[in-house]
Design a protein around this nucleic acid. Structure first.
Lengths: 281, 281
DNA sequence: GAGTGGTCTAGACCACACT
DNA sequence: GTGTGGTCTAGACCACTCC
């Protein structure tokens, strides 16, 4: 956590022009499944959208502190309770982090978040740790993978970057990753920068390319290890392995990464918790 | 949804004996990781625990309506905002469901919840549907599986019920389930009742045995189909299949079911969404 | 001590559902 | 119409962090 977490001045539009508590505009009654327009719905949702736009468009970089809730309430022209509700949701969405007595901060991709939210391989006995990452390949090429094209909403032939990593846990190779990235979003990414990055790759996306991965969808299946996977993971060709295809999304559910992971589950498991533990139960 | 959703009278202890807003008992300052005691922590957490106890101990069966929030506030001796916050968390935990204009209800295991929260197999093209279930075996036996014993916190040799199901999607066998249930929790469960149940098995647990599955933890790996799985799923022996081990938990994180699912992922995927979509984003 | 988020209150009005 | 949950307000006090 940066010590000099400066508090930025952001410009926010007042949501309620005149007297507060009057201009209620309910969501469209003939409800389509679509998102509500910018000037509709509950006030706290409009406040949330206003904050999201500021965060998303970079006026307020990851790690920086937001104005205090009192200040936000003043500049948005709503009560502090409404601001708190908007911030509550943004915290639940992992977009903001609150620290009592210090302030509210735009969330960053640190190692803990990576392990907690995006890395789901752990030893069969439940031991969890961050993997060692080894860059195996990096190249710029034309997209020729129909699955990747669909996931990234690109056409085949468009420029992409392809990254191959090997992840090891306690010296054992466990995962082979193949990432496909839209070249347009990652201009200037080089093999050197990838290899020398200090933290996780999602930290790199965020700090160097202003891309914050908010969530991801994964589809898993069992497969037989092909020659390449067998070589990288040190298993026999044909051994059963798990194949996980992930599409990572940023603001507006825009896809920014398509990844195929091949996992050697001989000594490790892919874990999945359905719902969180009860808080204070 | 039952039409005659009667509203039950529940007895709730007043959380604040005297004048409201005074008796603040902060959580233990030398914070252990343990849960706070019943009379500690924020008021809304104490209200939540009070409601949980009522729900958990059956005073208020699934599907019934809680007293109105105004009433709860009165009987708990707290303000309505505090009640709302407690209920907010219970709704987030899938323990209560709110319906505007109708009331707040104890959540039930319906088909939709099952599909949404506990069934994660879908066709490769993304099509989702409820599986057809076929009961293959049912027997009472002594526990002889070390993994199941650990998951259920039982000793080997204790009485358990073992259920085997085959799940088919559009006529194709896709999943082979083997469930291990502590016999002590499911007294009176017979093959007939299992086979003739109308809904999902979690609905049966809830309606017949007052056991509500709140969450589950799953560990997946790839494996080669053994003879039994191959026969049930119609795949060659040795074909790669996914093996998913699930421990289902009820209140207090008490394990109530251990299940090993073998999934034929030739035409279907096991899906996993990391974080929910942004609401109103 | 000043400033921040965390909790709690008391009341108002709105949208919705049932009757 | 009556009663429910949904939203919003205005202000109070507490706990925590940093200076």
């Amino acid at each position: 956590m940066a010590l000099a977490a400066r508090r930025v001045a952001i410009r926010l539009p007042a949501l309620v022009p005149g007297v507060p508590g009057v201009s209620r505009t309910p969501g469209a009654p003939g409800a389509t499944g679509a998102e509500p327009g910018p000037g509709t719905g509950p006030l706290y949702r409009r406040a949330k959208r206003a904050l999201l736009q500021v965060i998303e468009h970079g006026a307020c970089a990851p790690g920086t502190a937001l104005p205090s809730e009192t200040e936000l309430a003043r500049s948005l022209g709503v009560s502090i309770g409404t601001v708190r509700r908007a911030v509550d949701e943004l915290v639940a969405d992992h977009i903001l982090v609150r620290h009592q007595g210090r302030g509210t901060f735009v969330a960053t991709h640190d190692a803990e978040r990576f392990l907690f939210q995006f890395f789901h391989v752990e030893r069969a006995d439940g031991h969890r740790e961050s993997p060692q990452v080894e860059l195996l390949a990096f190249q710029r090429q034309r997209l020729d993978d129909a699955d990747a094209a669909e996931a990234l909403r690109l056409r085949e032939g468009e420029a992409v970057l392809v990254v191959e990593n090997r992840l090891t846990l306690q010296g054992r190779p466990v995962v082979h990753d193949r990432l496909v990235l839209p070249a347009a979003l990652f201009r200037g990414l080089t093999e050197k920068r990838l290899a020398e990055r200090p933290g996780t790759i999602y930290q790199l996306y965020q700090s160097e390319f202003a891309i914050t991965v908010l969530r991801a969808a994964e589809r898993a299946r069992a497969a037989a290890a092909d020659r390449s996977a067998a070589r990288v993971l040190g298993v026999p060709v044909g051994a059963p392995v798990m194949q996980v295809r992930r599409t990572a999304l940023t603001f507006g559910d825009k896809p920014v990464e398509y990844r195929v992971s091949v996992v050697n589950t001989a000594r490790h498991d892919y874990v999945h918790v359905l719902s969180r533990p009860l808080r204070g139960g």
